[in-house]
Every structure is written in C-alpha cells, then in structure tokens.
Simulated scan of single mutants.
Amino acid sequence: MANIRTGGIVEQSGIYKCTNTSCGNEITCVKGERVPPCRKCGNTEFRLVRATR
C-alpha cells in the first residue's frame, strides 16, 4: 500500500508510522477520516504498519 499524506482520506484503518526517519511516531487512522499531520514532528506522510478492521 502506498504512503498516505495529511489531508487525504484513509482507505484502510490501521496503525500508521511517520515516514520521518528521526521521528517514528505512530498514529491510529480510521477508514473514511482525514489524515492528520504528525503531532511529534509535523511531517505530512505516513506508511501503514498494521491494518485493522
């Protein structure tokens, strides 16, 4: 699955990890909601770590 960006609509609920290598913050995203920016570093891109239902 491709990375998701802040403001985009989440297509797969799950745990997403910040792509900033010095951050590594993980967030929970729910299908149909908008992706927030990283609260730790402000990065705008995440990758799926673990999918949920």
Rank of each mutant, 00 (worst) to 15 (best):
Y16I: 00
G8H: 11
A2S: 12
E33K: 12
T21Y: 14
G42S: 12
I27H: 03
M1W: 07
R53V: 11
Q12S: 06
E26A: 12
V49R: 12
M1Y: 13
T19P: 08
K17H: 08
G7K: 07
A51K: 15
R5Q: 12
I4L: 07
S13C: 05
F46P: 00
N3W: 06
C41W: 12
E26P: 03
G42A: 09
L48C: 09
N43K: 03
C41L: 10
G7V: 10
V30I: 15
R50L: 10
S22P: 01
C38G: 03
C41M: 07
T52H: 08
P37Q: 09
G7I: 08
N43I: 00
E11S: 13
G24I: 14
G7C: 07
I15N: 01
C38M: 02
C38V: 00
Y16C: 01
F46D: 00
R34A: 15
V49P: 02
T6V: 08
C23P: 04
G24Y: 06
G42F: 06
A51M: 12
T52M: 14
C38P: 03
V10C: 11
N25W: 05
I9W: 08
L48Q: 05
N25I: 00
E11L: 11
L48P: 01
M1V: 13
N20M: 09
R53W: 09
R50H: 13
A51W: 05
R47T: 12
L48M: 14
V30M: 09
E11K: 13
R34K: 15
G42L: 03
R5A: 14
K17V: 14
N20K: 09
K40Q: 14
I15H: 02
I15C: 01
T28D: 07
N20G: 04
N43F: 15
K31P: 01
P37L: 05
R39M: 12
C41I: 05
I15K: 04
R39C: 09
T6Q: 10
I4K: 00
E26L: 11
R53S: 11
R47N: 06
R47W: 06
T28E: 11
I9H: 06
P36Y: 02
Y16V: 00
K40E: 15
K40V: 13
C41H: 10
N20F: 06
R50G: 06
L48G: 02
